[in-house]
Simulated scan of single mutants.
Amino acid sequence: MDLSNSIISFIDALGVVQGVLLAILLMIIHIQKNKSLLFLGIFIFLFSLEPIPNILHDLGILNTNPNLELLPVGFHFLAYPFLLIYVEKISIFNNKSLSYWTLIPGVFEFIAATFVFLLPYAKKLEIKDSSFAIIYFFLGLCYSVYIMIIILKRITFHTKEVENQYTFLDKKTLNWCKWFVYTNIIFLGLNFFNFFIDSHVWYAWISVLNVILIYWVSFKGIQQEKIIALIWIDNDTSKEKKLIDAKQEIEQEETSELDLSTSQHIQDFMTKDEAENTFEILDDYVKNSECYKNDTLTIIDIAEAIQIHPKRISYAVNTIKSLNFNNYINSYRVALAKQILKSSKASTLSIEGIGVESGFRSKTTFYNAFKKNVNMTPAQYKNSKD
């Protein structure tokens, strides 16, 4: 075995070992802290095992132990569905049914792969060199990409709903998971091209990316907490709409009904007059109470104060201002920050301090919101002549 094969085998082995250990860690954390990490741990475990056949080949183990040929560790149809279920489990839609149906092809895959593994060595080589193996490889890639497209759609819907319920979005938008999926699509693309060119250099890059992805998803997964829906999300508008008390949900992991309006059957739409009236009540309250200074403000807090169902509040803001709830509240925070930046108070506060005074919980959130609303940074605005 040459040096290049040794290096690639070492990287592959590192990925397998770290992946298995991190997967076990996530499962242990899931048991101890009741976090939604079981499905992520299973995904990492299955994702990490795939390089094993290449390791066995490069190390010459298949020459001395030919019965290990076609070891059933390539979970093309099973791994990514567990990532999808994990995303559903931690997202704002965790009250809905999880996509267990996506596991069905993977279960059949594992049964078939185990059956093939138990066949005589000569028969396994025949299958390995057949067109069926090529078809199986490409179908697995296509199914994985299909599942990742579903994940991206789930995250998009999740982000839209979160922005209509929270004003502090840190660790709630699942952006890390979105970029992880994008990177995995690139990863699968590299595997696709490697199937044709079979280059050691190309595969070395795939191995390095594999190790990085395992560390990335494990680290982010440990940090990520389940996002609680402040409004019961249900596509069936004929059903009763329930609200969830977020604080009780976090502390007790249970939901409760809040009496925020006279009607418990809230439609997803209102007339224009109703929307305008709702927004007027909302806007008056936000201006007079200066509730936007509360950095943890949610739509539930306002709904309780003005006794209007949060679904109606959200719809009114979306319709009248063409903004989500998060951007609407941030517009008031940015307006206050602009006042402070042009006042004598600016000389006694840092830029970050001005953000805190205005209701922003983090420096990054303040900078992003200010730049989005004013088209310049807070420091640039402070030094401008406007």
Rank of each mutant, 00 (worst) to 15 (best):
E304T: 10
L40V: 03
V162G: 08
S263C: 08
I185V: 11
F157Y: 12
F75C: 08
I308D: 04
K153P: 01
P120Y: 15
F43S: 04
V181I: 12
A113V: 00
I29V: 08
V145S: 10
I313D: 11
T319L: 12
D58R: 10
D234A: 08
T102H: 14
E251L: 05
Y381A: 07
H309S: 03
M148F: 13
Q165V: 02
F82W: 11
V286S: 01
D198I: 00
D12S: 00
W202A: 06
K171W: 01
T296R: 15
T298N: 06
P53L: 02
L323R: 11
A133K: 12
I85K: 13
D58P: 02
L78H: 12
A303F: 06
V16M: 04
Y285P: 08
V73N: 13
S199N: 11
E126C: 03
P120H: 09
K128D: 07
I228W: 03
L282F: 13
G355Q: 12
I90Y: 11
S384V: 05
I281H: 11
K371G: 01
E69A: 07
F82S: 03
E276G: 02
F168V: 13
Q264N: 15
M270C: 03
E50K: 08
L78G: 09
I61W: 02
S207T: 03
N94H: 14
I306N: 06
L190Y: 07
L71I: 14
I206A: 02
K153N: 12
T377C: 00
I228Y: 12
W216P: 00
N326F: 09
I186T: 13
S358F: 04
T102F: 14
G106P: 05
N210L: 04
D170Q: 12
S130L: 01
N210F: 09
L46Q: 01
N235Y: 12
T377P: 07
E69T: 05
Q224M: 08
G74V: 06
G60Y: 00
F43G: 02
G19S: 02
Y86E: 03
A369V: 02
I206H: 05
L21E: 01
V87K: 09
L40S: 03
F108S: 03
M1L: 04
E276M: 06
S36M: 04
L49H: 05
K338D: 01
